[in-house]
Design a protein around this nucleic acid. Structure first.
Length: 468
RNA sequence: GGUGACGUAGCCAAGUGGUAAGGCAGGGGCCUGCAAAGCCCUCAUUCGGCGGUUCGACUCCGCCCGUCACCUCCA
């Protein structure tokens, strides 16, 4: 039996116990990138939340089937391809590859499916036809629209009052003519110079929302468990997905909707015009460790705004280092005879608190606090009587669990353990230390420091590791 | 104008009726030839402000101040 987990469901605005439709198997759809540019750290915050979600579910014993769409047809991709005079596919392929490179760099696990909107045109057309058969659509100037007046549940996700929307200041930003400003386009009539498909709906291309409904239902079924995105997707995107999907099937589309809050930079909204806009590449070029970036973006619970600051990034780097240092100490310290100084309960308490935090709507801050408490206790035990084999296995299991869920445990490089040249220098240094020739000893240490190697003289001998 | 969040130490942040987790930074100490790593002590008489409810409120209610998000294509 998988562990019980609670989520705040945007649809009900309450924290609920989660029950997948098929016991033990979670089907989830996570809104992915529009592939017209490199993803920025705000996008990454959302993808990292989704990554922690799937890792937590897996660690809790659920089977997970995740879909993440790649939006490769919309105004921005069309414009980008046209600007460079290349095909839409050629243009978007480049950013699809960049997207995978970025999520790999951050250790984001791959979803089971990455459907592209342009590969699912027939499914999208069929969905519109089903909607038409049920009287939810109308055609104007070659475009097909969804008439929201035919869907009584419209607004249930966002809680928006449609009369207010109608009265709102920003209306009809769309270039297409609609019967009612609140209606949205399902299928856009072909325009000169834009990609178009010849279909039963006439020549054209899918509207923005259509792909997610069509691909989600094709790959996960007409009803599935979880749908995620960032808060700005609640309206109109997710609201429209519900209308399209439930209008076509008459069934509940998604049971649990989870939305990540935005990331801000130094307290300000991230914007290119404000000069505080960062992609992963920008940060890596500045020399930041991807693991530290991951730690920072994962450390604030997903429903809180995350204030990205360079101070915070340094703190995150320190956190990652502390995990690595403790792991290294554990490896270098000889096992204690017997049980040693780390009670089994300490690790039990870690698991209880770490998992308890995650089960509480993915409270990663609470989980991380448990991690630091464990680190302190492990170090205390290492300073005291050491840790026996049994205790070591328990601690290693705890680190493995931490890494499986949050993915923030640094890997020890194999090179750190074997290098004859370094070993020779260390032997020489220790010989000079014995004879109290500290000037020579320090010179050797400085030389190694210059080579990116840090020495530590422990009670069990001198150990070394490379700096990042 | 409508809807919804949020405001906890220098910074990030948990808690949400029983008397303030955790991390980073800072200060002091132990260990070390010196370091590094680690450990110990210290760091909010107080949770935006003012009232109210209560034996008791950071936690509930009201008002005010401030920051922010969404209101048709922005993760």
């Amino acid at each position: 039996m998988p562990r019980e987990i609670h989520f705040f469901n945007t649809l009900t605005r309450r924290v609920e116990v989660f029950h997948p439709l098929e016991p033990g198997h979670v089907r989830m759809y996570t809104c992915g990138p529009t592939v017209y540019n490199f993803v920025h750290i705000g996008n990454l915050r959302t993808f990292l939340f989704e990554d922690v979600l799937r890792r937590t579910l897996a660690a809790f014993g659920y089977r997970v089937t995740q879909v993440m769409n790649l939006t490769d047809i919309d105004d921005k991709t069309i414009k980008g391809a046209a600007a460079e005079g290349v095909s839409l596919r050629e243009f978007t392929d480049r950013y699809v590859a960049a997207f995978f490179a970025d999520i790999d760099a951050l250790g984001i696990q791959r979803a089971e499916h990455y459907p592209r909107a342009t590969d699912f045109i027939p499914q999208q057309v069929e969905l519109v036809q089903r909607l038409t058969a049920r009287g939810h659509t109308y055609v104007q100037d070659g475009s097909t629209y969804f008439r929201i007046a035919t869907f009584p549940g419209y607004g249930k996700l966002s809680g928006l009052d449609l009369d207010e929307v109608k009265a709102g200041a920003r209306v009809d930003a769309d270039e297409y003519e609609k019967e009612d400003v609140r209606d949205f386009v399902l299928w856009k009539a072909a325009k000169p110079g834009e990609p178009a498909w010849e279909t039963a709906l006439g020549p054209g291309r899918p509207g923005w929302h259509l792909e997610c409904s069509a691909m989600g239902m094709t790959l996960l079924g007409e009803s599935f468990d979880i749908h995620t995105g960032a808060v700005d997707n609640i309206f109109p995107h997710h609201e429209n997905e519900i209308a399209q999907s439930e209008g076509a099937t008459g069934k509940a589309f998604v049971h649990t909707w989870l939305h990540a809050e935005h990331l801000v930079v130094e307290g300000q909204k991230m914007a290119k015009s404000a000069g505080n806009f960062f992609t992963l590449r920008d940060l890596l070029e500045k020399g930041y460790d991807p693991l530290a970036i991951r730690y920072l973006l994962v450390s604030v619970p997903y429903r809180q705004k995350l204030n990205f600051t360079f101070d915070g990034l340094h703190a995150a780097a320190a956190g990652v280092e502390r995990i690595g240092n403790t792991l290294r100490r554990l490896a270098h310290t000889p096992p204690a005879v017997g049980e040693g100084s780390l009670p089994a309960e300490t690790v039990d308490e870690f698991f209880a608190e770490f998992d308890g935090g995650l089960a509480d709507d993915l409270n990663t801050a609470r989980a991380l606090a448990a991690v630091h408490t464990l680190l302190t206790k492990v170090n205390q035990a290492l300073d005291a009587g050491g840790i026996g084999d049994g205790g070591r296995r328990r601690v290693e299991a705890a680190f493995a669990h931490l890494d499986a869920v949050l993915g923030i445990v640094p890997k020890a490089a194999a090179a750190d353990t074997a290098d004859a040249d370094v070993d020779a220098l260390i032997a020489e240094r220790n010989a000079t230390r014995k004879t109290r020739e500290f000037a020579r000893a320090d010179a050797i240490r400085q030389e190694l420091t210059a080579r990116g190697i840090v020495l530590e003289d422990t009670p069990h001998g001198t150990v070394w590791h490379r700096t990042k």
